[in-house]
Write a protein that binds this DNA or RNA. Structure first.
Lengths: 317, 317
DNA sequence: AAGGTCCATAGGCTGAGGCTATCACCATGA
DNA sequence: TCATGGTGATAGCCTCAGCCTATGGACCTT
């Protein structure tokens, strides 16, 4: 706590501790850390002695994290995340927007937004490499928190925990149905009450879009129809096969309804929708960079968006 | 960010960086860290090279933190705080409630609460040493955040930033006036409106109790009377000298009004007051310990409080 | 000009932390 | 039953990171 008193553990020791906890073995951890197993053993033993806590139970045939060890490992991870941020911060300060960022995206955004913003970002920051990784909100939030990801693009309406964020765009939800469906009245805006007593097609568990749509259905008397779709493309297929009505995020339209299979209607204002945002670990040293990055993303979106959305909506009508 | 990639900086280097930034010189920092100045110079140079950032401008006669350096120093401090927490966590796990905790207290709580809870804590945790430090809320919050303090006892109504907390007790405010004062009507409860158009004696700037009382005065037509008191004791002196009416926290009564100089009246429910709490850094590894400590404090308070408060209130009436 | 202060540099020493080789243990399968 | 292949711990050696002292060069104060 006194910032000048020598600390009895080193960052490398903490890395070893976390590696053993994650990989469940000294040998595997040693390989991952590119050191010999005895070196790692020695450092672990030293860290345990310094902390006064037996982090690992080496009984029997396996290595288990002790009760007290779990707290130690968690805190060690926090230290390493902070240290990793420091290094990344240095990189950014030394040479802004160079290097690699790992950014997560949820599946109901990724295929529609990335083709637009990725090229624009590549133009804006030619020396920055972005590695995109697709996962559900809960997985992304966890990975951002433990430093596996640097940031994530997701919907603000989902539970982001304590992440910090900057909004990128509003993405209204639309009512979509096969042309034969009684709700397929392209000339008029839809109301949420129209869903009353309808069978609504929804996505699989885990998708935040499913949760939002479900909440909406709960507000009126709508029920979930048939099987759950694993993607918006499947959802569109099912809807156009007449299996029910569904909701679609606007950004998905130009891709998923490009052949106009479904009749798509906007809702009367204020209609349902989500706010797509870039989110990162609260207090991340890179907050300033992420804010700039989000601004660039927003510009890219706004340069492409409104015409595209409109065009497709009209074609569908 | 990859938790197994070797980190190019060491905790010791970060300590040196922070020490130089805090003390404004290599020599002083070296002394504080108990190393020779060349050793420290070398480590600083190495850290700067590893991070790719010139943290310190060594031109002219003085050492200045560069623009980019400020961000680096802040993040380095965050890493060291996390590492310090890890060590402290180990200590606690190895031997719960042993060692030293540094806890801050605001001046309008300290003299009244500590004499009650400090002995009780010493009994409950004989091997735990608590070092109490008195300061205003803003200073305490800053020190808790940068790791100079482990926790603080203060009023929840003040701005605690992101600190986590556990409530200890409710501390209602009371109306106090010299017996000659027109508001000195001991038999009846007071209303906030009674302060309308009164001159109310307040504490000095910086005290959160002043801010709370000021807000209260703003709700009615009360104005601040005369000079500002530097302590509740002074406030009581001024009030008993007939310089105006004042507010007092209940916990201060047994001490400050022990001779019954002032007539003290409770407010009608729901009266003004504050919630006294133990607060610590959000996400501190010691959160579990602080929760237990707060519970012990609360028990100590409740064992002493209600009878004492009542006794004195009656004596004053 | 002298002296004092600052930080940087030079060169030497020591131990922290790396390595390989090996041990002790315990499963599993021949 | 015993070899085999897995675990982590131990022993002994070696190298270099990081410490030290001594000194240099730049600047301010006296």
């Amino acid at each position: 706590m006194d910032l000048v008193a020598p600390l009895p553990v080193s960052l490398r020791q903490l890395q070893y501790v976390v590696a053993v906890a994650d990989l469940g073995g000294f040998r595997k951890a040693a390989d991952a850390c590119h050191v010999s197993q005895p070196s790692l053993s020695a450092q672990i033993a030293q860290a345990e002695a310094a902390l006064g806590v037996t982090v690992f139970e080496r009984n029997r045939r396996q290595v288990r994290v002790s009760a007290a060890g779990h707290a130690i490992v968690a805190q060690a991870r926090a230290v390493l995340v902070a240290a990793g941020d420091l290094v990344e911060l240095g990189r950014q300060l030394a040479d802004p927007f160079t290097g690699t960022l790992r950014i997560g995206v949820i599946p109901t955004i990724s295929p529609y937004l990335l083709p637009e913003i990725a090229p624009a970002l590549a133009r804006a920051y030619p020396r920055l490499t972005i590695v995109w990784r697709e996962d559900h909100t809960s997985g992304l939030v966890r990975q951002v928190n433990d430093g596996t990801l640097d940031a994530a693009v997701l919907a603000l309406e989902a539970d982001l925990g304590t992440l910090e964020h900057a909004p990128l765009m509003r993405d209204p939800f639309l009512l979509a149905a096969a042309p034969e469906h009684r709700l397929a009245r392209p000339t008029r805006r839809a109301r949420i009450q129209d869903l009353d007593d309808e069978g609504v097609l929804l996505l699989d568990d885990g998708h935040c879009f499913r949760d939002q749509a479900l909440q909406l259905c709960a507000r009126v008397g709508a029920r979930e129809a048939g099987y759950r779709a694993t993607s918006l493309a499947t959802l569109v297929q099912m809807a156009s096969a007449g299996r029910g009505v569904t909701l679609l995020p606007s950004i998905a339209l130009p891709v998923e309804n490009r052949r106009g299979q479904l009749v798509v209607r906007e809702f009367t204002a204020p209609g349902p929708g989500r706010t797509i945002a870039l989110a990162w670990r609260r207090g991340s040293a890179l907050a300033a960079s992420f804010t700039l990055l989000a601004a660039a993303m927003k510009r890219a979106v706004e340069a492409e968006r409104p015409p595209a959305a409109m065009r497709s909506l009209h074609r569908a009508s």
